[in-house]
Simulated assay, not measured.
Amino acid sequence: MLPSPLPPDFIPFNKPHLVGPELEYIRQAVAAGKLSGNGEFTQRCQQFFEQRYGIHKALLTTSGTDALEMAALLLDIKPGDEVIVPSYTFTSTANAFVLRGARIVFVDSGPEHPNLDVAQVAARITSRTRAIVPVHYGGQAADNFTELLALARQHHLWVVEDAAQAIEARYRGQALGTLGHLAAFSFHETKNVSAGEGGLLAINDPTLAARAEILWEKGTNRAAFFRGEAARYEWVDVGSSFLPSELNAAYLWAQLEAIDLIQQRRQQLWQTYATALAPLVTAGQVRVLPTQTDSAPNWHLFGMLCRHEAERDELLAYLRHRHILAVFHYLPLHRSPYYVSRHGNAEPLPHAERFGQTLVRLPLFQDLQPDQQQRVIDAINEFYTTR
């Protein structure tokens, strides 16, 4: 049976946006006869990240998940190693390292924001710890992020930034994705700039760059061979098929060209929500995720916190009844069936659990029209007038 069609006035949570040249660039890629990746559009996208953000080497991947899995492979994570990860995150953050045999050590969120609580990290470090994987939730770094980096240096640990949501965001003026040794970005259709599916691994430690390219090329020296730097094209290391199609890169390039306009629009939408919902915040009926100290956010999402889980679920149902799709976000990984089945019940992480029970994300996408956004705002206000 086919699903029922959505009502014509339905407001989705997200809608992919065409800035203009995407289809023309895809046509150009097809005409050039180079579809398999690492062509002109791939190289343009990678150079954009290197030049705009100061990344030493950038490599496009088929997804943000693949970028994380490539990072775990690049760091030679092995069975018995421990990797510190916030519990409030998507499965890919942990799964990339579980695939290499690592034990995941979860850290709670802070009391005000879903990002990991830096103050709790030191107590989680053991002689088996190899890496810390902070997640820049909603395009913001954790408070006291410099302390996290100092802790990693003190214990000789790798830092892999999960910057899936963080393009254009900054911490103390420095682009997120350039603070750690490695960083993973995502270009999933829900992200600020999109390729439908896609990602990028940022290599900020120059000592990792040459091997990263080999892993990216399925364990071969293919890229170096075509640059004339290797006499033969050989299998020289492990690797996998991380390189995306040139068609994805062509689509992404159009979005990167328009990134300033995209960011301006998202900021406008975010500020409209914040201003309109301020009376509910003042009345103590809802909270809005705050801007972290020293962070310049990228307006990736508008997060609103209800007072308890039942209220959150009632609000989502009410909005859906009004033909509006708002959504919750992550369920803490330390409570997931996969983790519990293998490790048993973990210690409580109360802040991560609270965010999992109360956080709501409102529709925020490039083509959200003023009348649609006002409908969302009106519906939320109507819901709380009955509370």
Rank of each mutant, 00 (worst) to 15 (best):
M1C: 13
F10A: 04
F13A: 05
P21R: 12
Q28A: 08
E40W: 15
F48T: 03
R52C: 04
A58H: 02
S63T: 09
L68N: 06
E69T: 03
V85G: 11
T89I: 11
T93E: 11
V107M: 10
H113V: 11
N115G: 07
A119W: 04
A123M: 07
T126F: 09
D143Q: 15
T146P: 01
T146D: 15
E147M: 12
H155D: 06
Y171R: 09
R172W: 05
G173K: 15
Q174L: 12
L176M: 14
T178D: 05
E189N: 13
S194I: 03
L201S: 00
T207I: 10
T207C: 09
A209I: 00
E213I: 07
E213F: 02
W216F: 04
T220N: 10
A223I: 04
A230W: 06
S240W: 07
A249Q: 02
L252R: 02
Q255A: 10
I259C: 01
Q271M: 02
A274Q: 15
G284R: 15
T293P: 01
D294I: 03
A310T: 14
L316V: 05
V327N: 06
H329N: 12
P332Y: 02
R335K: 06
Y339R: 13
A352E: 01
D367A: 11
D378E: 13
E382C: 04
Y384K: 05
R387W: 10
